[in-house]
Design a protein around this nucleic acid. Structure first.
Lengths: 208, 208
DNA sequence: TATTTTTCGTACTTCAAGTTCGATTATCAT
DNA sequence: ATGATAATCGAACTTGAAGTACGAAAAATA
């Protein structure tokens, strides 16, 4: 078999397995899904699974990487749009919110939490490859703000990239986890709260 | 034995076990610590451990609750101090930073992340008991701001409690996890970055 | 058809959580 | 002190899942 076809076939198998795993993770949760489950559902023998992935964590990480590039793509279209700073900012927020709604299971992994295991070995892919793209995107968002002269003059670009990222993702996380409290104590639904928070946060960035 | 003495003894045993578990969790990580390890190190038989705690997760959660009340206490002294809004705000930030430095292993659990397991059953204790205290403390911080007329007039108290909490904890989390990037790309050490972020964020709250 | 590669199936190993239960030891009430 | 009650021990056991081993079967290739 040509190496070309062979590689494609390998990719096909990997994708099948990942697809099956995604479905099960979604359905029963990551912990509750066993390698036997995945094998059965993907229609491979367990041995074959272990040919393509060296561990369950390996599978999980591959899925996270997939989602990471999807998210990066979506953010790119938000920020690259031909609009001003304010509009792009809100689009970015919206994009992250939508993503968190669609893939709550993966959101925290993507936002830089530990991977599956509690081991301290942090995979560098997110921090260095795809993460890089993200930082560049936010950086170009901020540059819009500079160009249109709406950013506060004392804003420094590089640290603000991380600052914006961390605050927005923190806000979304809490909005998800404290739904009850939002409802009961704050008397707001999640969307209202998010809108309010993003708007308030916006004020920390722009001239008034 | 009087029920009084008996209860005290039970507490004593529980505390011993928790103490041993804390040490091992610190030393080798939570996942890597087995129940046998804990039993041996605490000098009880495994059966006895299971008399006092129904699972490893139970132990972990108890430890988290301990730290939660420690943290709440520390925040209380920060905010109750006889100082103005700005000062209390920075004290709160500092307090959280210190805590994250001292107990990085527990920080994310305290901040509302999932517990040990990936199960969706969220323990309500944090959300309803101790979490309540925290929200009250931040609420009283904000009231200081209102009283001294430094808060923006369009700030609504209740949602802002969560807003402040989520942004601050997000900032600290990222500052910890992206140390490398801070150093290499932003050219700032963690403390500088935190100072910068807290100051910038402060601007989203106050009149200018 | 012969050879090599991939997949399969089954049984195995390992490891840790949690259980069982009879034996042992400590506590207490009389 | 002694017999009853309760707490602890220890050691073997069960369960469940990750990951491995390996020969048999099937598929692709030459």
């Amino acid at each position: 078999m040509g190496t070309r076809k062979k590689a494609a076939l390998e990719q096909f198998n990997r994708d099948n397995i990942l697809e099956a795993a995604k479905e099960l993770f979604e359905l029963k949760g990551v912990e509750a899904t066993t390698m036997d489950d995945i094998a059965k559902h993907a229609d491979y023998s367990k041995s074959t699974i272990y040919v393509y992935f060296k561990s369950k964590e390996d599978i999980y990480n591959s899925i996270v990487e997939d989602y990471m590039s999807i998210l990066t793509g979506e953010i790119e279209t938000c920020i690259d749009a031909e609009t001003g700073f304010e509009d792009s900012y809100y689009r970015l927020c919206e994009c992250l919110v939508n993503f968190e709604e669609k893939y709550p299971k993966y959101y925290s992994s993507l936002m830089g939490e530990e991977k599956m295991t509690n081991s301290r070995k942090r995979t560098d892919i997110i921090n260095q490859d795809v993460g890089r793209e993200l930082r560049d995107l936010i950086s170009s968002l901020l540059e819009k703000g500079v160009k249109h002269n709406v950013l506060r003059k004392d804003i420094e670009l590089q640290p603000t990239v991380l600052y914006v990222w961390s605050a927005i993702s923190g806000i979304i996380q809490v909005a998800d986890r404290k739904r009850d409290i939002l409802k009961k104590k704050v008397n707001m639904d999640r969307d209202e709260y998010l809108k309010y928070s993003f708007r308030t946060f916006y004020e920390s960035l722009v001239r008034r």
